[in-house]
Design a protein around this nucleic acid. Structure first.
Lengths: 202, 202, 202, 202
DNA sequence: GATGAATGAGACTTCATTCAT
DNA sequence: CATGAATGAAGTCTCATTCAT
């Protein structure tokens, strides 16, 4: 069955292209990114990319989808074994921190797609956002079930939590804070979410 | 005194270029934006732009600075006459909503600069972010002075407020909510800031 | 004797490739025609074509030869059973009409080879033209033998007859006339050949 | 008035591009022709062509129109001062001979457009054909007026004359005859037109 | 023999920038 | 100062051909 080997090779190559594409797109943005460079980095011929992706746009979109799956998986896995709401939200925060620093390529690509100008890219990035919100809403609902929280609009609350969590991480990073420094803010941010600004970080 | 008239003309042309540049850059992003189109829209010759700006990059940067000033002014003016902390934060939120919808061009440009890949653009956008934070820090400090708030790290708090406020507006917009719908969330968002999630919107 | 079967298979495949090549070349011209498409249409693998033909050029040339044989056979068969010169020339004309409409693919390919730019293609097409002329010369000679015609330079006459006959058909088709309309001109054209313009079509 | 100079320069450059384009297209055909080469030959930058023509297709079409005008002018001028029908038709024939040899580039381009596969090119070439027919029809009508000819369908007759004249020249050239040799056939061809094959060339 | 994945040369076209007018 | 014609670098994508399976 050479088919399986081929299938595997094919998938491996696809992954390699996507990985290099993410790096190139993150470094230069969609327009300035160079298909030739991506091919070179992936160790394949210029034309070969077009055997795996329709065109540059398709490559970008496929890469975006791949990244989204990875991120969602990363976020999900983080939350798996935790118990109380405070802890869960802190884990969520730390998951974003880790992504922002260790997968900064894909995070940058995702953000530029979200706030960029290409409608299709934006739509794909928005889909990831909805997935995030769904996960957070689930956390909040369980918190409500456990009596840790009383909240009349879970959707809005989830959006607020996402905005605060993700955006704080990104902004802090942009302002030059290190991964460690930001991680240390986890409790404070969750305090804000649960009890508001005035509450001191005990 | 023809000098003054010339100066005025020059400044007016500069403004016109920047305005059209903002529209074009917002529509297409930095790379895909076309200098020719900008010149045409501004009613000047193709080469004339280079009498006002070094090159495309410089034009983008200048536009970014101009936008930043406008935004800061818009945010500042909104907060001028208000008194209590809750109100002030709600006004801040609404100011962001207005910018996100009525100056969506410049807002998009700003966001793509912030999360984009060009270091110089990012730096400029970051400077705007610091200005936002300074304004918010001021508000919070006055709130503390007035006993409306107790907060041990004003800087971190300001960053949280900015993240939540701005990011909520943008995310909600991206998710398809209307200006009105988002505005109605003002109180809820400020409630979260001041008292945390559990507090019901009274 | 598997050899014969294989030979037959091989020949059949060759024919199939040539048939599809004719269609593709007629549709797109030599350069724009796509080897892949031809292979697909012929129901074989992309690489297989190169087991039958050296390269694209060779395929085109082989196809041209095949077409030429078919055309000559078509023209010959048409003239087989006819008797008097007038009739024979009319049949010739109608044979061209039929080819131009029912084998328009190959006719177009032939014309573009004849007036195209590739020397080798042109030579091949010229060979077909010589065959046509030989056939027409034969007709004229028999006409002369039968006393239906007096003509001092058969070669030149044959070329004139070919030019008029074939070119009239093609031009009329290009100008939008239908197969029927052109067929109805058969007598008129032959009248011109035999008696000149002034003679009315009786 | 630098405008006039500019206008002249512009027109001169346009002509130069078209001339080189004709040569390149005649040499290689539409697809294989190279825009870069044309630019080089015309002594201008690669991008400059696109200031004069939309794209390759537009360049080809413009060149085709230019050629058509030149040919029509050439044919017309030839017929200007002649008197009797026989002479006129001989002049027409010789005009085609001259074009086929001295403007062989444009003639080849025209024929490949006429029998090629691109609809737009074909349409343009067909327009030239109609112009030819109109001119010939005029000649025949005057011949009829002068009693040199009796002919019930001038249009069909004109098409026959064109087919025979032009196609004879082209076919003879393709068969390797020289300009002189073909020119010597002028009388014979016109004899055929006027009196049919049997009439000896007196 | 048959296949089709991989290759890379090559072409069109765009557009920021320059510079003569 | 203003202009816009000219430039040419650079990039995406196609496709004939090869070769390992």
């Amino acid at each position: 069955m050479p088919k399986i080997v081929d299938e595997r090779m094919r998938e491996a190559t696809r992954r390699r292209i996507i990985r290099e594409a993410a790096s190139e797109f993150a470094r230069l943005g969609f327009d300035a990114a160079n298909i030739n460079t991506i091919a070179e980095q992936a160790g394949i011929g210029k034309g070969t990319i077009y055997l795996y992706f329709e065109n540059k746009r398709d490559l970008f979109l496929s890469m975006l989808r791949f990244i989204a799956q990875e991120h969602i998986a990363a976020i999900r896995s983080t939350l798996a074994a935790t118990d109380n709401l405070q802890k869960r939200l802190e884990h969520l925060f730390r998951a974003f921190v880790r992504l922002a620093f260790e997968e900064s390529d894909s995070f940058n690509v995702y953000m530029s797609a979200l706030y960029g100008v290409n409608r299709a890219f934006k739509d794909e990035a928005t889909r990831l956002m909805r997935d995030y919100i769904a996960i957070i809403a689930l956390i909040l609902e369980e918190g409500q079930t456990n009596g840790e929280l009383h909240c009349d609009d879970i959707e809005a609350a989830a959006l607020m939590v996402l905005s605060l969590t993700e955006s704080y991480v990104l902004s802090a990073r942009v302002l030059g804070q290190t991964e460690q420094e930001i991680n240390q803010q986890a409790r404070r941010v969750v305090q804000l979410i649960l009890h508001g600004l005035s509450t001191p970080v005990s």
